[in-house]
């Protein structure tokens, strides 16, 4: 069995054992809010406050209508949060699971999937808030919004690849999750989340989003939801290309590190 086939088999085996990673991921969420009064409701409160506060101020700052700006900001920020969390937490997926990896024979990928569960809960809650915001402002939602579903699939795959790459690489380089946290903080403000992409275009700063793969991953979900129509073809093409690139990198990294992870922990 070639190393690549074995890796793919391990990934499939991990996916099939969804009960294990789903349970671990949900336990993490409960754990995070243990002994707090409202529990995971904090995710909802945080997001609502954040979007309400920042949204109204920034709408004025960027001369946007609150009615269209708030939904745009909400969904962009929520997807961004998902991407950022899967990248940084992905980096800790194997490191934090050391006790399990050294004792149990499950494919390591379940610990990456656990991180995915962890990050998907805020994504789901955030998307709900987006729909509430749309309703409050009486914005129309058409059937075209369903285009966000294939977008979501692309987003999930990309996030899984990101998290897996980070999981392997961070076992070798323990600085990586910290470094990514810093980098993502900066990236958040240059990625078109707070401002529409046309403000960059108007100033001839197109390269800022064109070189940012995370922008495309946001757009495949955000555009259909906000405008009830598919994103432009170019967005899908670049996203697909980026996924292929991630896959190649992941296979290379996993081939090199998969068998060594347990020794490096």
């Amino acid at each position: 069995m070639s190393a690549t086939t074995e890796l793919l088999n391990n990934n499939l085996k991990a996916l099939k054992n969804w009960r294990v990673w789903f349970h671990l991921g949900m336990a993490d969420i409960r754990n995070k809010f243990a002994r707090s009064l409202v529990g995971p409701l904090w995710i909802l409160l945080n997001l609502t406050l954040w979007v309400g506060g920042i949204g109204t101020v920034y709408a004025a700052l960027f001369h946007q209508e609150v009615q269209s700006y708030l939904p745009f900001l909400t969904i962009g920020f929520v997807v961004w949060g998902f991407l950022a969390q899967t990248i940084t937490d992905g980096g800790n997926a194997f490191v934090f699971a050391e006790g399990y990896i050294k004792q149990f024979t499950y494919p390591k990928q379940i610990y990456v999937l656990r991180v995915m569960v962890n990050a998907t809960v805020p994504l789901a809650i955030g998307t709900t808030i987006f729909f509430v915001v749309m309703l409050i402002f009486n914005n129309p939602i058409g059937l075209g919004a369903l285009w966000s579903l294939p977008g979501l699939v692309l987003l999930l795959i990309a996030a899984y690849f990101h998290a897996s790459i980070m999981a392997y690489a961070s076992v070798r380089f323990r600085d990586l999750p910290h470094g990514m946290t810093s980098l993502l903080q900066v990236l958040m403000f240059v990625t078109p989340i707070f401002f529409p992409v046309k403000t960059l275009k108007e100033r001839g700063l197109d390269f800022i989003y064109q070189l940012n793969p995370l922008y495309y991953l946001i757009e495949v979900v955000r555009h259909p939801l906000v405008f009830s129509e598919p994103a432009s073809m170019e967005i899908y093409e670049i996203t697909a290309g980026y996924l292929v690139l991630l896959f190649v990198v992941l296979i290379a990294v996993a081939k090199r590190f998969d068998k060594r992870v347990v020794y490096m922990l």
């Binding site: 336990a27 754990n31 006790g99 050294k102 004792q103």
Partner: peptide
């Protein structure tokens, strides 16, 4: 092996039985 690792320290004994059982 090495008991006292591979537990969720903040979770109850019951919860840890479930997690270990699954693993």
């Amino acid at each position: 092996f090495e008991f006292a690792t591979g537990f969720e320290y903040h979770r109850s004994g019951w919860e840890n039985i479930r997690i270990r059982g699954m693993l």
